[in-house]
């Protein structure tokens, strides 16, 4: 079953049961966060919830681990800058 979600406003499709990170990668997106000090792009690294590199904002909630969180229909995923608290 496929689910619809957006990444920075862009409509994308994923398979239900995939994580946010997997859904983004499958859609060709490799990074969705910029670091606090260097502003460097980050995406998945450890893939199992250990490294916290994959933090992203989902439906306005920052610091969600993309590698663990399942994607849901209608999710609005946005790039997280720094700690995501603006």
């Amino acid at each position: 079953m496929s689910v619809q979600f957006t990444f920075d406003g862009r409509p994308l499709t994923a398979e239900s049961g995939q994580t946010v990170g997997a859904a983004l990668l499958a859609a060709g997106v490799q990074s969705w966060r910029t670091t606090r000090f260097g502003g460097r792009p980050r995406g998945l690294f450890c893939g199992i919830g250990v490294c916290f590199d994959c933090l992203v904002t989902v439906n306005g909630e920052p610091n969600v681990r993309a590698c663990l969180t399942p994607i849901a229909d209608g999710d609005a995923v946005t790039t997280q800058a720094g700690d995501g608290r603006g």
Partner: peptide, 20 residues
Amino acid sequence: DLPGVFTAGGAQALLKGNLV
């Protein structure tokens, strides 16, 4: 730290858990 560098197990988890 470049996106595209994964741990080996992370790549495996992505594949086994998500088929991506």
